[in-house]
Amino acid sequence: MNAIFKRPDSLKDTITHFCPGCTHGIAHRLIAETMDELGIADRTIGIPGVGCCVFLYNYFPIDVLEAPHGRAPACATGMKRAQPDKIIFAYQGDGDMAAIGTSEIIHAANRGENITVFFINNSVYGMTGGQMAPTTLLGQQTTTSPYGRDFKSEGYPIKMAEMLATLEGVAYSTRVALHSPKHVNQAKKAIRKAFEMQINEMGFSVVEMLSTCNTNWRVSPLEALKMLEREMIPYYPLGVFKERTGKDFL
């Protein structure tokens, strides 16, 4: 009998700590499938940030370095420079990359470090209990914006994929979403493209993935998926913001 759907080899057979309905699991699966397809898992090193993504090593059977909060792009820089023949990816949440780690992500991108960064944007700090992040939408209620995010006080949600695309060192910057089969397929293509950019030594690649956090959004998993479509995508448009086609940057 032919198996037409199975767990990727690059995903461990284990129960995740993610809340039911969380789309981190989808992102993990897509990355694992892509590592399988590209045959790179045995030379890939993953660097999770701090937050829900920190247990990455429990799910991927690859070498893993646990980075301090926000610093994964700097750790990845040191690692890639030390072993340029390896595939290095960072996996960061929005509190990690878009708040405490803005300096590290911008400068790693600007140097054109030949690394790949997966960015999970679910508009809140997940692991610490749903506090307001720089990515929190205007009007969105969180435990630290109980009256809704107000731009007069907390500024505007930050658009990382667009911002990073402005930097010369960036080879690929895109935003995808994980709320429907169609979007998941698009996300998979983006992940593959990002890894290929690194394999082909094109420079820095980043995939921002709009994700749900139904627990902290205090809605059902299904409602969270609808909210992503209804409220996040209008502010965070999907698409490719930068894609290098040749090594013309040289």
């Binding site: 370095l65 980075a67 610093r71 700097a74 750790c75 820089t77 040191g78 420079r81």
Partner: peptide
Amino acid sequence: NMVMGASA
């Protein structure tokens, strides 16, 4: 943190 990456 770059030191950490190279050291790792």
